[in-house]
Lab assay of single mutants.
Amino acid sequence: WLKDDEATHCRQCEKEFSISRRKHHCRNCGHIFCNTCSSNELALPSYPKPVRVCDSCHTL
């Protein structure tokens, strides 16, 4: 799980985070992405409801 202060850019699109481009953790891989690159939800065994995942984890 990557800490918020360790990420300054989206792991996928590499756009810089700002007040309007917020950080979101993928609940599967733990990396930090922008909203555009992590707008999917997936049912994971460790969560009772579908949770936010990055595009890469969603296509696995």
Rank of each mutant, 00 (worst) to 15 (best):
E41V: 10
K49P: 01
E16W: 02
G30A: 04
P45H: 11
L44A: 05
H31A: 07
H31N: 06
K15W: 03
R21Q: 10
R27V: 06
R21I: 07
D5T: 08
C37R: 03
E14T: 07
C10L: 01
T59S: 13
F17H: 02
L42Y: 08
P45W: 06
S39Y: 04
H58Q: 13
R27T: 13
E6Q: 07
L2A: 12
E41C: 09
L42M: 11
S38M: 04
P45V: 09
S20T: 13
C29N: 00
A7S: 13
S18Q: 06
L42H: 14
C29Q: 00
F17Q: 01
W1M: 15
P45S: 12
C37K: 02
Y47A: 12
K23Q: 06
I32L: 11
K23E: 08
T59G: 14
P48I: 04
E41D: 08
Y47L: 10
C29V: 00
H31K: 09
D5E: 09
I32Y: 05
T8R: 12
I19V: 09
E6V: 06
D4V: 05
R21W: 00
L2K: 14
R22H: 00
V51T: 14
G30P: 01
T8D: 10
S56F: 15
V51H: 00
H25P: 10
R21M: 06
H58W: 12
C10I: 02
H24S: 06
S18M: 07
E41I: 05
A43T: 11
E16K: 04
T8E: 10
T8K: 11
S38D: 02
D4T: 06
P50G: 09
V53I: 04
L44K: 04
H25A: 14
T59D: 13
S56N: 15
G30N: 00
H58N: 06
V51I: 06
H24I: 03
C34R: 02
S39L: 09
N28C: 13
L42C: 13
C10H: 02
E6P: 07
S46Q: 12
P50T: 07
C10A: 01
R22T: 10
F33K: 02
S39R: 11
A7R: 11
L44S: 03
H25N: 05
C26D: 01
A7T: 12
P48L: 06
L2R: 04
G30V: 01
D5I: 05
R22L: 10
F33T: 06
L42E: 11
S18T: 13
A7P: 09
R11F: 11
S20Q: 14
N40G: 11
E16P: 07
H25L: 13
P45L: 08
T8I: 13
A43R: 11
S46M: 13
R11D: 13
S20L: 08
S56H: 15
W1F: 09
S38T: 10
K23I: 07
P45D: 11
V53D: 15
Y47S: 10
H24Q: 06
R11E: 13
E6L: 04
A43E: 12
D4N: 11
N35D: 15
S20G: 14
R22S: 05
E6C: 12
P45I: 08
A7W: 08
C26I: 00
R22A: 09
Q12G: 14
C34I: 01
E6N: 09
P48Q: 11
S46P: 13
H31P: 01
N28K: 07
C29R: 01
L2T: 11
H9N: 11
V51A: 11
N28E: 09
F17R: 02
P45F: 07
C13V: 00
S18I: 09
K15I: 09
R11W: 15
K3R: 02
T59R: 15
S20F: 12
C10D: 01
P50K: 12
P50W: 03
L60G: 15
T59K: 14
L42N: 05
H9F: 09
N40R: 14
C29P: 01
V51L: 05
H9C: 00
H31M: 09
K15M: 04
D4R: 07
R21T: 14
N28M: 06
H24L: 03
D5A: 07
K23R: 10
C57L: 03
R22M: 14
S18N: 09
S46D: 15
L42I: 15
E14Y: 06
Y47T: 11
S46N: 15
S20M: 10
S46C: 09
W1S: 14
P45M: 10
D4F: 07
C10K: 01
N35L: 15
F17I: 04
A43D: 12
K3A: 02
E41Y: 09
K23P: 03
R21L: 07
K3H: 04
P48C: 02
F17M: 03
S39W: 02
A43I: 12
R11G: 14
S39A: 14
T59C: 11
K15T: 08
I19R: 10
V51N: 02
S46W: 13
T59L: 11
P45G: 07
H24N: 06
P50A: 13
Q12E: 07
H58K: 10
C54G: 01
C29K: 00
L60I: 13
K49V: 09
Y47W: 04
N28I: 06
E14F: 07
E16L: 05
C29G: 00
H25K: 12
A7I: 12
D4C: 00
C10W: 03
S39M: 14
S39I: 07
S18L: 04
K15F: 06
R11A: 15
C57I: 00
W1Q: 15
C57G: 03
K49R: 12
A43K: 10
V51D: 00
T36V: 15
D55E: 15
N28D: 08
E41R: 08
A7Q: 13
L60C: 02
Y47C: 01
E6A: 10
K23C: 08
N35R: 14
P45Q: 14
D5R: 03
A43C: 09
D5Q: 01
W1K: 15
H24Y: 07
E16D: 09
S39D: 14
C57P: 01
S46L: 14
T59M: 12
C29E: 02
T36L: 15
